[in-house]
Design a protein around this nucleic acid. Structure first.
Length: 578
DNA sequence: CGGCGCGGCGCC
DNA sequence: AAAGGGCGCCGCGCCG
């Protein structure tokens, strides 16, 4: 079935068909979903051809199947920056059709008014197709078939299906987060800024307190015209004053005793707050009591999300007091405690490491097992093992973990070895790392030529180890990202099923699709916040916990691993920060 | 003038 | 107190 419609009809189409629980197939969630949400319409499931195509293009699980399959079509956007526009389609397998194995329904949505087609007479393959992600309904259906075939012929279709469903759910959630927004109290934020920086300065000026600190630094360094914001000038002035630093970073400054250091560090701290999350940021990113950052699901190589504006992934603790629930609503703040060590234990099948975390803090468990003496040592050793530390206290402690947890350490060591050779590594569910860039290969081959110098060899070894640290971390960080996606996707489904009774005060600023029901408002790698009406907070807490337990089972089956949550029901994000 | 790399630093 | 992985954003300063 092929139906033609205008993009403006999409909300009505979705309303009509979503009750049948179809999986909507579309080119790019970022192209289609925001306008649906704006119309107050949510979809339950989707297949994001762009995101799925990106995973399949690299996944080693697909391996041989890819060689005999056609390439991804040129119209399919590659990167998140290339949002598709123009004529394109949504494909809906109706519940009846899919259960009967019949053909899906195709909807071809024209958007000619907004994006007139630029086809010149005689164009075989119009240039705007490749550029804008424009495709016909048949092309979208064909791409879906191609992707399904790759999955079916892969070495682990089940794991890959889970990953790709979670990835697509993540795309829906990313759009929903933007639509709902983080409830933000601009007055609280303003009070934080005044407490830290003093009164708001006039446009183009710095806060008085920063000027005072700058004057102290200039006096102490005997550099009356010094610009503290210029790293080069500052380094020169520090060295001229006899402070032997190689950089102006805070940790290096802190190793010296000088009258300039304290005011300089204080200036830096204030400058950071002012430029990253000051009044300008507040005016640009917070409107009507909501902070709406732009998330980029699947935006990093490991599968973690990125952001393309607003800096949502780096909200400093200083301003988290401004994240506050609407009247009659609460924030349910949950983060997975020591997610990455637990992920490593489970994916490597290391029962002793899993035991160390059962019913307690992982790092405590490592101390209790007699591996190291203090919790801090356990933490730096574990981080060092996952990040590839070779020096310092961390590097010295890692060998103790090798003796205690050989299976877990062998997994990350193997991943590092593959990376050092320039190979790919793959997460539990099948996301593979990118290959190193051409420049990296050039450095390696230079070192193996007969006339290679010791410097060439050093450079090659160093860049090989750099890439090895990346792949070492990739398997753990990437699998942790998969757990987090499954957690969040399961939570989203559960939240949608929670019945909200008579609600005293709808959260109007959350948008038509969310104002009466609990919804996720923030996500940060292993942590999320649900904005929940007073009456259903207990249901939301239970949903958050159940979804975490279910994510563990989906990834690791019956392997005895726990993913405990630190969870708090609070009025303000800052209160969750014990 | 805009683009880009880098240092520094916020988050996990 | 950093180290070792992943990011984004800011200001600076260089380049075309």
């Amino acid at each position: 079935m092929l139906a033609e419609a205008s993009v403006d009809d999409l909300p009505a189409l979705v309303r009509e068909f979503d009750g049948g629980r179809p999986r909507w197939i579309w080119s790019d969630t970022r192209r289609w979903y925001p306008s649906l949400l704006q119309a107050g319409v949510r979809v339950e499931r989707c297949h994001d051809l762009r995101l799925v195509g990106a995973v399949l293009a690299d996944s080693e699980s697909v391996g041989p199947a890819r060689a005999s399959a056609p390439d991804r079509p040129a119209w399919l956007p590659r990167g998140p920056a290339e949002a598709a526009a123009g004529l394109t389609v949504a494909v809906v397998p109706s519940s009846a059709a899919s259960s009967a194995g019949g053909a899906p329904a195709l909807f071809e949505l024209s958007d000619h008014a907004a994006h007139p087609p630029q086809v010149q007479p005689g164009d075989a393959e119009p240039a705007h197709r490749a550029r804008d992600g424009v495709a016909s309904a048949r092309e979208v259906a064909a791409e879906h078939d191609r992707q399904e075939s790759l999955i079916a012929r892969s070495s682990s279709p089940g794991a890959l299906r889970l990953l790709l469903a979670a990835e697509s759910a993540g795309a829906l959630i990313g759009a929903e987060l933007a639509a709902a927004g983080v409830p933000w109290d601009a007055d609280v934020h303003d009070r934080v800024l005044e407490a830290e920086l003093g009164p708001r300065p006039a446009a183009g000026r710095k806060p008085e307190r920063m000027e005072v600190l700058a004057a102290q630094v200039r006096l102490a360094l005997d550099a009356p015209r010094l610009n503290l914001d210029s790293q080069a000038d500052l380094l020169r002035a520090l060295r001229a004053a006899g402070i032997g630093v190689a950089s102006t970073s805070r940790w290096e400054l802190r190793e010296h005793e000088h009258a300039a250091i304290d005011p300089l560090v204080a200036y830096r701290r204030m400058s950071r707050l002012l430029t990253a999350n000051g009044w300008t940021w507040l005016g640009e990113w917070v409107h009507d009591g909501r902070f709406r950052p732009e998330y980029v699901p699947g935006g990093t190589a490991t599968g973690r999300w990125a952001t393309s504006g607003g800096g949502a992934l780096q909200l400093p603790k200083q301003v988290r007091a401004a994240v506050s629930a609407d009247p009659g609503w609460w924030l349910v703040v949950a983060d997975a405690a020591q997610l990455e060590p637990r992920i490593l234990a489970a994916m490597s099948g290391d029962r002793r490491m899993a035991d160390a975390g059962r019913g307690r803090d992982v790092y405590r468990g490592i101390v209790d097992a007699g591996v190291v003496e203090t919790r801090d040592q356990a933490k730096v050793a574990m981080l060092g093992a996952m990040y590839g530390a070779t020096t310092g206290e961390s590097g010295r402690l890692v060998p103790r973990l090798h003796r205690a947890f050989p299976a877990a350490m062998a997994l990350v060591d193997r991943a590092a070895a593959v990376g050092e050779r320039g190979g790919r590594v793959t997460t539990l569910l099948g996301r593979s790392s990118p290959l190193p860039p051409e420049t990296w290969r050039a450095i390696q081959s230079r070192a193996s030529e007969p006339d290679a110098t010791p410097a060439d060899e050093r450079r090659a070894r160093s860049s090989a180890r750099d890439w090895g640290r990346f792949t070492r971390n990739f398997v753990v960080q990437g699998t942790a990202a998969e757990w987090a996606l499954c957690w969040m996707a399961g939570l989203r489904t559960r939240l949608a099923a929670i019945e909200v009774g008579e609600l005293a005060r709808p959260a109007a600023a959350s948008g038509a699709a969310f104002q009466c029901s609990p919804h996720i408002v923030y996500f940060l790698h292993d942590e999320l916040i649900v904005h929940a009406p007073e009456g259903v907070v207990d249901d939301v807490v239970a949903a958050v916990r159940e979804a975490a337990a279910e994510a563990g089972r989906m990834l690791f089956g019956s392997f005895p691993i726990e993913f405990p949550l630190d969870l708090a029901v609070v009025g303000s994000y800052a209160e969750a920060d014990d």
